[in-house]
Design a binder for these strands. Structure first.
Lengths: 147, 147
DNA sequence: AGTGAATTGTAGCATTGGCTACATTTGTGT
DNA sequence: ACACAAATGTAGCCAATGCTACAATTCACT
């Protein structure tokens, strides 16, 4: 496509290409912090897929340097994976708090956030954060400078 | 997963399963209205993919009753496809106007909307519409009742 | 120590969406 | 009418993600 702007569908496909990695590292990070460790069967339950799917994806993420594990052992994040998990978790929180702030019921906000978070660019995220900071609702994060 | 609430990742996968159909019927509808017809090479340019990918997807959507075409001929929507296109277009517009209303630059809003629109549930869409109605910015649609 | 349950890994299937290469059909210009 | 260009269709490849069935390993209980 010509012009300075990228085709939006290319960005969508790029977002999709990253989506599984982001969801998995976020889940691993959360589980390790909550219950001390993360196993294939835990991820399978969390993601709602079979253990085979998880096993395959964990292998791929290990090849990509985001996860590390030994056969039949719990899953851990690499430093790279931890960074991605932190970014994903932060973005997730902002999107979810934002949806709650505009009046979306909690269960729907949680559900929609899982899909929306992967398509939120930097400026959209910043706009959501600004909204949370200037909203009359208590913001969950430390407030940014108010407009 | 137990409990009354569905696993959010199942909803994400269901959204993804519908995504291509929604994008394609929306694109076909827009193009037919803008330039009078829609051909495979037009869809390929719009979606940023090869004509082969489009050809394959158009065939599938024809099998699914959303699109109709003859070999080497332009693509048209069936009545079912038109309905889906109308719903997709409406949702797309609301999401995009909403992002603009919260301060996202136009180009970013257009780009992010392509991904976000597929993960917006009914209550999230309603919350966005309510926001647009009550916002001090001119809403693009007929205003709903103000809170 | 032995047995059975539970967990994880492998094989092979399907679907979707991406591609290149090549074949076929249609359209355009002379 | 003919030649060439453009558009579209088919074949076959790849990657990612989903599954069932079965094999291998680990864990827990007796």
């Amino acid at each position: 496509m010509s012009g300075s702007s990228e085709n939006p569908f290319r960005k969508v496909r790029a977002d999709h290409a990253q989506e599984t990695a982001e969801d998995y590292v976020e889940a691993v990070s959360d589980m390790v912090h909550r219950i001390g460790e993360c196993r294939v069967r835990d991820l399978a339950a969390h993601m709602g897929v079979s253990h085979v799917t998880v096993s395959r994806i964990v292998s791929r993420l290990q090849e990509e340097g985001l996860i590390e594990t030994e056969p039949y052992r719990p899953v851990r994040l690499t430093p790279t994976g931890e960074k991605l998990a932190a970014m994903s978790r932060r973005r997730h929180e902002i999107v979810e708090q934002f949806l709650l702030a505009i009046g979306v019921p909690a269960e729907d906000a949680a559900r929609d956030t899982e899909g929306i978070e992967h398509h939120v660019g930097e400026s959209t995220l910043a706009a959501m954060e600004n909204f949370l900071s200037s909203s009359h609702r208590p913001a969950p994060t430390t407030p940014e400078a108010i407009e």
